[in-house]
Computed example of a mutant assay.
Amino acid sequence: MILPIVAYGDPVLRKMAADIDQEYPKLNELIDNMWETMYGASGVGLAAPQIGLAIRLFVIDASPFADDEELTEEDRKQLADFKQVFINPVIEEETGDEWPFNEGCLSIPDVREDVSRNEYIKITYLDENFKEHTQEYSGIAARVIQHEYDHIEGILFTDKLSALKKRLLKGKLSNISKGKIKVDYRMRFPAAKKGR
């Protein structure tokens, strides 16, 4: 089932998300719904806070990036089959040079900005079967994970922009929270006027 994506301005996007266990109600159904919601919005990642749940869970399918001719062969290979569920993840290390890349977010439609992030990460997480993994990622894969991980920490990519950029985006972000924007997927707007 496709769920509405929570828009910028909703308090759930600012909460530190909580760990979950195997007893979390209807977890498999939730994960299926998150995949369907993400694909329906043409996203490559979706975190639980973006559908209104302050839990440490996100899904990523970065395979669309594998077609990008500008990426290295190694990056394209890593991204080709990179589809993963992350439960209760912990980034153990972020290393390497920071590099800028143009990011967007399903909760902040029509806003894209360059964000600098570390090149390498080491992350420990549980998969959908609650099997523990510790893996290292680099490049685009690391970046997509860092973006989704920020969501469960209550951080948005716009928080990483300069004060000037934030000021320039203020009106646009306000309009997004009020629902004064056209999107081709279901959204829930925190400051939208009721009954219009």
Rank of each mutant, 00 (worst) to 15 (best):
G45S: 08
P100N: 11
L13H: 05
D97P: 04
L57A: 09
S107M: 12
E23H: 13
V12S: 00
D81C: 02
K182L: 11
V144D: 06
M1D: 14
G40A: 14
L46V: 06
K131E: 14
E98S: 09
E23G: 07
I108K: 08
R14W: 09
G96F: 13
V111P: 00
A62V: 05
S107A: 07
D67I: 06
T158D: 13
V85P: 09
A142G: 03
S177C: 12
P11I: 08
K193N: 02
L3H: 09
A41V: 02
S63K: 11
L30S: 08
I108P: 00
E29Q: 15
F86H: 06
D21A: 03
W99V: 07
G104Q: 02
L164I: 08
G171V: 12
C105K: 01
D184K: 14
F157W: 09
A17G: 04
G104N: 02
E69Q: 14
V6Q: 05
L53Y: 12
R56Y: 06
D21N: 12
W35P: 00
D67L: 11
I176L: 02
K194F: 12
I2H: 04
L161G: 05
L30F: 11
E69I: 06
Q146M: 12
A192N: 03
L13E: 05
Q84A: 14
C105G: 01
N28V: 10
I2L: 13
I31C: 05
L13R: 05
